[in-house]
């Protein structure tokens, strides 16, 4: 646990600073009310009314997020494997090649089906 307390210290410091800044900007800055100023920016035209969060957005982002998750998971397994690779040697290599090949199959599928194309 001792290894982690310093991180807590730094995190507290940073949080304090950030929160302080956010509050300061509200306190220090001038306040001149202007209705147009509070509208969201749309190059000067009347902004289209939208729900918070902007409503819906392209499916593409979901797909990217999902692909990311899949590969991130792969990385989860690669790290411990890499760290202890020297002990496993050949066995580790063979097994991991099988693993990577499996992931690669999915990857090839996604690629070919246009999952990696952004348009």
């Amino acid at each position: 646990m001792e290894l982690y307390t310093p991180i807590l210290a730094l995190a507290l410091l940073a949080t304090g600073f950030a929160v302080f800044s956010v509050i300061m900007s509200a306190v220090v800055g001038p306040k001149r009310y202007n209705r147009a100023k509070l509208d969201s920016y749309e190059c000067g035209i009347e902004p289209t009314p939208q729900p918070v969060g902007g409503g819906r957005f392209p499916v593409k982002y979901f797909i990217t997020a999902m692909l990311f998750i899949v590969f991130d998971i792969e990385i989860i397994f690669l790290y411990p494997w890499a760290v202890h690779f020297d002990q496993m040697a050949l066995f580790g290599l063979v097994e991991m090649v099988l693993f990577i090949a499996t992931v690669f199959v999915a990857y090839a599928y996604v690629w070919r089906r246009g999952g990696l194309d952004w348009d």
């Binding site: 956010v22 300061m24 900007s25 509200a26 220090v28 800055g29 001038p30 306040k31 001149r32 100023k37 509070l38 509208d39 969201s40 920016y41 902004p47 939208q50 918070v52 969060g53």
Partner: peptide
Amino acid sequence: KLALKEDIIPKAADKVVFL
């Protein structure tokens, strides 16, 4: 200079998350 600028929270924003 930035610190002295007006702090604007757009009215369409989700305030808590925005901060």
